[in-house]
Write a protein that binds this DNA or RNA. Structure first.
Ligand code: SF4
Ligand code: SF4
Lengths: 148, 148
DNA sequence: TTTAAACATGTATATAAAATACTACTTAGA
DNA sequence: TCTAAGTAGTATTTTATATACATGTTTAAA
């Protein structure tokens, strides 16, 4: 049971931008900071941009900015938007060939479990990911803060 | 976000055996019924056998039987036993290289969500998967019941 | 007005996990 | 003693994901 890196990267990007605040961050910089593929991150960023989570600015001195206050970005929303395949098992997906689907009582149970999972994520926002640890996060992400 | 077929197959095998009751079922028969790989099912079955869920009988007229009453087999237990990789994201797994792990507040949130997911599954047993639909299931699985 | 730093887009390749297939062996009832 | 079953280990195929590559577009600064 995995979430894709794609989804986790999306959350990391949003967190990075939240920590950075008003300042622009480049894809290159974020990829370097986390030591992950710049190309992959680029796709994540475009996705987030198309969905209105972030603003992208092209050209020299360009970069990324959060497009919404962290308090309004729920983790559940991000996961639903970025984790493309949320179908836990065959019968939730296309091309289902499981013969017992019409009478299977596991399916609704899995559905309920999935609901419980998402409900937790819907209860948190990006702001909850900052908290009082923001300075520590900034340090780990190697974001040069205003401080010395 | 997927469960592996391996896990779903494990649950299907248990359900099949539960529906069949006292009667033995062969791996071949179950694979045929669901139209899935016999070889793959074989591994699932051995796993379930080693973990004490089922009894296997070798030789002619051999087959499989449930080793515990359906009421005592929780779905959460089965999923924990068969879904080998339950680590949702990098930091839950080996070789974690995510630099913000020490300060990441997403990790505990995901942990909570995972807990909510499993808690639902822990609340149901194999018996709940039978219910009054047992005859319909038997029909779908093409299990010849005592009836005409 | 040229240059370079940034994002945009599409395609191709590589990696890893999962599913499936194959081979040889053991058990035990008819 | 033959055959239908499970046991075990390995190999191959398939799929999803992640990464890399190539090329284009925008825009601020030199
Ligand atoms: S067994 Fe039930 S839950 Fe699993 S694929 Fe079939 S219908 Fe869905
Ligand atoms: S960002 Fe947080 S949740 Fe994701 S891998 Fe890193 S530590 Fe874990």
């Amino acid at each position: 049971m995995h979430l894709t890196r794609y989804t986790d990267y999306a959350l990391r990007v949003l967190l990075y931008l939240a920590v950075k605040g008003e300042e622009r961050a480049t894809i290159h910089e974020i990829a370097e900071s986390f030591g992950v593929s710049r190309n992959h991150l680029m796709k994540v960023v475009q996705d987030l941009s198309h969905r209105g989570y972030i603003t992208t600015i092209r050209g020299k001195n360009g970069g990324l900015l959060l497009n919404r206050p962290p308090e309004e970005i729920t983790l559940g929303g991000v996961v639903r938007d970025t984790e493309h395949e949320l179908g836990l098992v065959e019968c939730f997906r296309d091309h289902n060939e499981c013969i017992i689907t019409p009478a299977c009582r596991l399916k609704p149970i899995l559905n309920e479990a999935m609901g419980a999972f998402m409900q937790v994520l819907d209860g948190y926002t990006l702001a909850d990911m900052l908290g009082r640890r923001q300075p520590q996060l900034a340090r780990l992400m190697q974001i040069p803060t205003g401080a010395t």
